[in-house]
Amino acid sequence: MEFWRIPFDANEIDITLGEVYILDDRCKGCGYCIEFCPRQVLQISDKFNKKGYHPPVVVNPESCVNCHYCEVICAEFAIYSVEAVSCPNKN
């Protein structure tokens, strides 16, 4: 994660990182997950799913903070995030 100013306790704080999964064939291409992701993790893809829609694709995997908003705004049960096992900021 990028900081404008490094917090003093950056070494001690674990930033939750997420991993996004997309079930392409359930997506109807509404774009809500892309628009409302607070970290610009997603983008519309060029590929077509079975129904002819363009599902989203993960373009910034390391930015995902596992907030689940994409998951809760999706009307299609087509996207969700899980916590990625991480050892952040210790390197």
Binding site: L17, Y21, V82, V85, P88
Partner: peptide, 10 residues
């Protein structure tokens, strides 16, 4: 940060 990616879940 280093990330261990869990197995693909569907």
């Amino acid at each position: 940060a280093s990330v261990n990616r869990p197995n693909k879940q569907q």
